[in-house]
Amino acid sequence: MQEQTCTKGIEVRICAEPAYLSVVRCAVRQAAKLAGLDEKGVDSVTLAIDEALTNVIRHSYGGPCTKPIIVRICQQQLPEGPAVEFIVRDYGKTVDPAKICSRNLDDVRPGGLGVHIIKSVMDIVEYIPQQDGQGMLLRMAKYLEAATETTASNKNS
């Protein structure tokens, strides 16, 4: 796991079993609330993290297994402002980030929406291949002010 300064946050480690997704969603929801995201922001980041974990189980590990997924949620002061940062670390396939993309939304068929949802919700999305083929690290962040402004703008529209 890439070491970063995280003074306020939590780390959750699960095995790559779909039954544990609900556990992570609970943790994300509470941590995002504590970090200051509003209800809409909490809902959207919870969805995005669920999608990230689903992609790890399906694509990085090729299906449910006992290998670990680590999720870290931290309050961070980024150069652009205060944010909640989410790290999802897996030890599955190492993939070229350029090849991680969503399907064309006009092509209506089951699946292929996870990356689109993550990128729609988060302000920062970075797929970082780990050295020696040791899986991937997905770094995501949601700015607190942007989340509040977006919600206010939606309420007013």
């Binding site: 969805l47 689903t54 068929r109 089951p110 949802i117």
Partner: peptide, 16 residues
């Protein structure tokens, strides 16, 4: 209470 793209994929398949 919650649905992700797995649920959505199920509904899209049912729609097809």
């Amino acid at each position: 209470d919650f649905m992700d793209s797995s649920g959505l994929a199920t509904l899209v398949e049912a729609l097809q």
